[in-house]
Design a protein around this nucleic acid. Structure first.
Length: 255
DNA sequence: ATGGCGGCTCGCAGCCGA
């Protein structure tokens, strides 16, 4: 089973890229973020034409998440239970007995801003909810744009970026608490090239200069980690014309 | 020190992303 996550930064604009990518990789599950589409505008027909079912929770302009899958989802959950968040950032479903949680963590704007406080509060709610979910679903994967680079090797320059949003201590501590639930960063199960990133700023030619951050992740429970065979970042689609600023992350489970 | 790109909007400039 191949599972993937990709922040498409507008599904409307990126639909051709997505269709190509689905045909190229034939993943079983794809978690999308920043679809930026209200539910009645979701391109369900185009996705179904590629052979995928979809579950989605969107809004216009900002945010929006979706799960595409070969088989239909069971027990779809939208949002974090008992957390009244108007922003569409979470969708979950069960596929062949595997619980898939798709997240778009708030970006946090800058350290100390209101959006930063919202990000930290949001992460606390996510972690509290997932603490129960990992017990309920031994085979669970959480995929998405976490907007956090966990370690020095996940950023192009840990000195310059120290204390900055996406890499600040409180954000990294929040990520560690999430990992502390017993989750495994599937990317680090394997040897990886140095300077492996998933996001590059559109500005300043950051992609061509290979200056990015690894902020999109696939975290899995130990039961799934033990059957995880590969985890890679697909930079190829980021190099195309009119790309998303994020690259997809793809993991293969021997299931 | 600032903004730099790209996507969005009852657009034509300003917000937001990360």
């Amino acid at each position: 089973m191949k599972i993937a996550t990709w922040n498409v930064n507008s599904l409307k604009v990126r639909l051709p890229h997505l269709q190509d990518w689905l045909r190229q990789h034939s993943p079983d599950i794809v978690c999308l973020q920043e679809t930026k589409l209200e539910d009645d505008k979701f391109s369900a027909v185009d996705v179904e034409a590629c052979g995928y079912c979809c579950a989605y929770s969107g809004q216009r302009t900002y945010n929006g998440v979706a799960i595409l899958s070969r088989l239909p989802a069971a027990d779809v959950q939208i949002g974090i239970p008992e957390y009244d968040d108007p922003q569409r950032r979470v969708i979950a479903g069960t596929f062949s007995g595997i619980r898939i949680v798709c997240v778009y963590v708030p970006n946090g704007e800058s350290v100390g801003s209101q959006k930063y406080e919202y990000k930290l509060a949001w992460l606390e709610r996510l972690t509290a909810w997932l603490a129960a979910e990992v017990l309920r679903y031994p085979r669970l994967a959480i995929l998405g744009d976490f907007n956090i680079a966990p370690e020095d090797r996940d950023v192009y320059d840990p000195t310059t970026l120290a204390g900055q949003v996406l890499f600040s201590e409180p954000e990294r501590a929040a990520f560690k608490r999430l990992i502390g639930l017993g989750l495994v960063d599937s990317f680090r199960l394997f040897d990886q090239p140095e300077r492996s990133f998933t996001w590059w700023d559109y500005r300043m030619n950051m992609f061509k200069r290979k200056l990015g951050l690894r902020i999109d992740h696939i975290l899995v429970t130990p039961a799934l980690a033990s059957v995880c065979r590969t985890c890679i970042i697909d930079r190829e689609i980021r190099a195309r014309e009119r790309p998303s600023d994020h690259a997809p992350v793809l993991a293969e489970l021997a299931i």
